[in-house]
């Protein structure tokens, strides 16, 4: 069994999202707690800016949940930078047990899942799940210099400058993380860095079909099924192939990478990506909709492309992963 049902489902008691200018200009702009149009957040390097975003996001999540930093028992966090330095420097000042994670764009779901499992098992009472990505630090590491004059492929995605933090607690009034399902690594032979949606979609399909098969649930049992960050191309592939598997996602399915930007006007091609993309959409937008009562039952399925610049240069294919987190307004949901 891959679906893990949490008998002591933890509650999300604080959440916040911090974004850059482009993300703030997007359709969800008003939902984010803090933004800096320059993307610098008062720092002199992009790497420090990303760390600062994580620090701000966690501080805001704590203050919105009316919690002190002493109350959290552990932090699960990650980002896209080499050796996860974005998280290490950003969360240094909290002086809390820290688990550094790398799941590429799936990191926020991985952090939420591990936080929930630890709380469910009784090891911790309160955990923080944090992740971030910064367009400028990611471009430098994975693609070209920022001022390099090139054209992007139509299937390319835009790394979000964003960070999200959520505080999970053994006590609270919801929403709750009631089920989680760790993804398995799936590689269907895609090696095009400019089509990450196609590289990650098979992992999303694997996780979703396994979840529906094991639980006997159907897509329409949910208010929303949200992948993070397949973009337009990956979403479309997932929708088509899930239909072949016998699951019609038409009514309830969307993707964090598409929600974050207004596609045509913002020139992001297939949509957003990066660890901060789904983290900010969940912590900025989705959890607010839970608070308003607009959503009660959401399957959040963050996908990650597990390649490195060197593996790509060596011609290796891009493995994908998709971790599932079921968020419900009911503790038994």
């Amino acid at each position: 069994m891959r679906v893990l049902r949490l008998n002591h489902a933890p509650s999300i008691v604080g959440y916040a999202a911090v974004v850059g200018g482009k993300e703030h200009e997007g359709p969800l702009g008003a939902d984010f707690d803090l933004h800096d149009d320059s993307g610098k957040f008062g720092m002199d390097t992009w790497e420090k800016s990303e760390s600062e975003m994580q620090r701000l996001a966690l501080n805001l999540a704590l203050s919105k949940g009316e919690l002190s930093y002493q109350s959290i028992d552990a932090i699960f966090a990650g980002d896209l930078m080499n050796q996860c330095t974005g998280s290490a420097y950003g969360l240094l000042s909290f002086e809390k047990p820290y688990f550094g994670l790398y799941g590429a764009c799936s990191t926020f779901a991985e952090a939420t899942m591990l936080s929930s499992l630890m709380i469910n098992a009784g090891y911790f009472r309160k955990c923080a799940a944090v992740s971030s990505s910064h367009f400028c630090s990611a471009e430098r590491q994975f693609r070209f210099p920022l001022e390099y004059g090139g054209q992007r492929a139509p299937t390319a995605q835009w790394t979000a400058t964003a960070s999200g933090a959520a505080i999970l607690s053994a006590d609270g009034n919801g929403p709750y993380v009631t089920e989680v399902m760790p993804g398995i690594i799936v590689d269907k032979g895609i090696n095009d860095i400019n089509n990450m949606g196609a590289a990650m979609a098979p992992a999303a399909i694997d996780t979703l079909t396994a979840y529906f098969t094991e639980t006997g649930k159907q897509p329409d049992d949910f208010d929303l099924i949200l992948t993070g960050d397949l973009g337009l191309e990956g979403l479309s592939i997932t929708r088509t192939l899930m239909k072949n598997e016998g699951y019609d996602l038409t009514k309830v399915y969307n993707d964090c990478g598409l929600l974050l930007y207004g596609k045509a006007s913002q020139d992001v091609h297939c949509g957003g990506s990066g660890c901060g993309c789904s983290a900010s959409v969940i912590c900025g937008h989705i959890l607010k909709r839970f608070a308003k009562g607009e959503l009660k039952n959401v399957l959040y399925l963050a996908t990650g492309a597990l390649m490195s610049p060197n593996s790509l240069k060596q011609g290796a294919t891009i493995p994908g992963i998709a971790h599932l987190v079921h968020i419900s307004s009911e503790q038994n949901g």
Binding site: P154, G189, P202, I205, E233
Partner: peptide, 20 residues
Amino acid sequence: MNMDSETYKKFTKARAPKSP
């Protein structure tokens, strides 16, 4: 997902929007 890698690669390549 019941699709082998070769078929999947062809499927994604055929449907991906091309540069103008």
